[in-house]
């Protein structure tokens, strides 16, 4: 049965051909398996742990959903969820607003645009740890902005958000917006550049005003950019751990806890692995609620 050397009317696949067929699958599989196992496999593991009474050491006897029940009676968890809600909404909303506005301004072909764009992107290239540390100083009532304004003669100026447990979460919003707004500007700018000039010219010929062109033609055509920006900002917001750790450390008290820092505190400083895992699973559920529709729409999109 030597198919490679015998001459037949229909040529059989040679060993090399078979190899060529398998090669792509072979080289893709490490990445695919790594990504899938590393993330989804471990998520299943976390889910398992969340059903156990694991404390400092993992236990694998399933005890049911009691950890989840405990979660919803935990005041700190509810604070963390509320904070994520406040932070996420404001952070995304302000970034989108500023991003679109500045991008439209920059789209008027101003001078030295390239240099500006790089400066806008810089904050995003920095680690959130650096951002958090820098803003911690700027917002510190005794050292930064407040002191500066007071020295300028406004003796009664107070800006103590960082140490005010009701307002501290808004300082996280400020630092987060500072870090990401420039990036959103760059995103929208490249989206604006992709808008077909001929449509705009046609509208101008028809006598449409510039604001009207933006409102009815350009902004609607930015829909895909809006969508991907929303996704990116959403997942930055949910993942925000380093920024909060560096800026407020979750404090004062636990006033600026978010689910990620909550999970960290309970799992590693309080050694409640099962409880921490449960909180991680709830977070995951939230992310999946965003990601699944996105993946679904992407998969259905014909190419």
């Amino acid at each position: 049965m030597d198919t490679t050397t015998s001459s037949r009317a229909i040529p059989q696949k040679s060993l090399a051909d078979h190899f060529e067929d398998w090669l792509p699958k072979l080289v893709i599989s490490p990445t695919f398996l790594a990504a899938i196992f590393f993330v989804y496999g471990y998520i299943i593991w976390t889910a398992w742990l969340s059903l156990t009474k694991s404390r400092m050491l993992p236990k694998y006897d399933i005890e049911g959903f009691f950890q989840y029940g405990k979660l919803w009676t935990n005041d700190r968890w509810l604070v963390a969820l509320t904070n994520l809600g406040i932070y996420g909404t404001l952070f995304i909303g302000i970034c989108l607003g500023i991003g679109l506005l500045i991008a439209i301004l920059l789209d008027q072909r101003i001078r030295a645009e390239g240099a500006l764009r790089t400066i806008y992107l810089y904050p995003m290239a920095l680690s959130f740890i650096v951002t958090g540390t820098a803003w911690k100083w700027i917002l510190n009532p005794g050292l930064g902005l407040e002191k500066l304004v007071r020295e300028m003669g406004f003796e009664n100026f107070t800006f103590g958000w960082l140490t005010d447990s009701d307002m501290a979460i808004y300082t996280v919003v400020i630092a987060g917006v500072w870090q990401s707004a420039g990036f959103v500007i760059a995103l929208f700018l490249s989206g604006l550049r992709g808008v077909d000039d001929s449509i705009i010219k046609a509208a101008q010929v028809d006598g449409a005003s510039l604001p009207r062109i933006y409102w009815s033609i350009i902004i609607p055509s930015l829909r895909p950019v809006f969508f991907s920006t929303l996704m990116i900002l959403g997942h930055i917001a949910i993942k925000s751990f380093d920024l909060i750790m560096a800026l407020t450390g979750g404090g004062p008290g636990y006033a600026t806890d978010v689910p990620a820092t909550f999970m960290y505190t309970y799992t590693f400083t309080r050694n409640q692995i099962g409880f921490g895992s449960a909180s991680a699973m709830v977070m995951l559920g939230g992310v999946l609620a965003i990601v699944i529709p996105y993946l679904y729409s992407e998969l259905r999109k014909p190419r």
Binding site: F38, V39, Y42, I43, W45, T46, L49, P58, H235, I238, K239, F241, P259, A260, M263, Y264, T267, I273, G276, S277, A280, M281, M283, L284, V287, V291
Partner: peptide
């Protein structure tokens, strides 16, 4: 995915 899901 949030990294806390795979941290433990």
């Amino acid at each position: 995915m949030p990294p806390v899901g795979v941290l433990v």
